[in-house]
Computed example of a mutant assay.
Amino acid sequence: MNLDKKIKITDYITLIALVLTLIAAVFAFYFKNQQAILLNAQRQQDLLEIAKANESSALARRDSEKAKKDAATAFEKAASSNEKAAKAELKSKELEMELLQLRLAVSDRFLPDFVKESLTNKLKYYQGIRVLIICNISNNTEPMNFSIELKNFLIGIGWNTEVKNNQNVMIPPPTGIKIYTNGETNLTIAKLIKEEFANINYPCDIIKTNDFNESILIQVNSK
């Protein structure tokens, strides 16, 4: 192969190499440009997502603050309602007690529920007690009605209780309640009963006697 032909082949190879290099350069530039476009688009997408996240976070914070304020307002209203309800209940109980005191003062004698409950708690430790209730009947049935209620209550706590009539002939008729008792245990019981009667302003006297044993005598006179 002569020199001219070798030179021509070399030139062709060089030209082909230049063309391939140019093609590779163009492809590399295109690929780099596309990659830059994709990266920029991804960056814009990321920035958009970050912005949305920040907006959502800010909205969540506003909602949280609003929820806290709403909760505080609701709690304040509930506290105010509870306070009003407590005051109303207290006022109702005060009125109820005033009505009870008025009833105790002007109506026939009776045993209110709170007295029954208190007496039950105090007297439940004493079992097998015998009680005789003497009812002094004067010009009305009030003493007998109270005697029967007292008897039923004492029977209810397990005591052996009976009522006897005693037609009063004294003028003026005796008033109040008298408890005749003998022995320390019966005296203690009589004091407990007197305490409860005092809470409802029912006059009651305790009289120690040796006339009888193992029983308590309660004399119910006119109011």
Results as ranks from 00 to 15, higher is better:
L3G: 04
D4P: 00
K5W: 07
K8I: 06
T14R: 12
A17R: 02
L20M: 06
T21I: 08
A24D: 00
V26W: 12
F29I: 13
F29G: 15
K32Y: 00
N33Y: 11
Q35I: 00
Q42F: 10
R43F: 11
L47K: 15
I50S: 07
K52Q: 12
A53M: 14
R62A: 12
K69G: 03
K69H: 13
D70K: 09
A71S: 12
T73L: 15
A74T: 04
F75C: 09
E76C: 06
K77D: 03
S80T: 12
N82M: 11
K84I: 08
A85C: 00
A86Y: 06
A86Q: 12
K87V: 05
L90K: 12
E94N: 11
L95W: 09
E96N: 08
E96W: 07
E98S: 13
E98T: 07
A105V: 02
A105S: 14
V106S: 14
S107V: 02
R109G: 04
L111E: 03
F114Q: 00
V115A: 13
T120R: 15
N121A: 14
N121I: 05
L123R: 04
Y126K: 13
I129T: 12
I129E: 15
V131E: 09
V131C: 10
V131H: 08
L132P: 08
I133G: 10
C135E: 08
N139L: 02
N139R: 07
S147C: 02
I148V: 08
I148Y: 09
I148M: 10
E149R: 11
K151H: 07
N152V: 00
L154A: 04
I155C: 00
G158W: 03
N160F: 02
N168W: 03
M170H: 05
M170G: 09
P173K: 06
P173N: 01
T175G: 05
T175D: 10
G176S: 07
I177G: 05
K178F: 07
Y180I: 04
T181H: 08
G183E: 11
T185P: 01
L187W: 08
T188H: 11
I189H: 01
A190T: 01
K191A: 04
K191N: 06
A198M: 10
A198Q: 13
A198S: 15
N199A: 09
I200L: 07
N201W: 05
N201K: 01
P203A: 05
C204V: 10
I206A: 02
I207F: 10
D211M: 09
D211I: 01
N213P: 05
E214C: 09
I218E: 08
I218V: 06
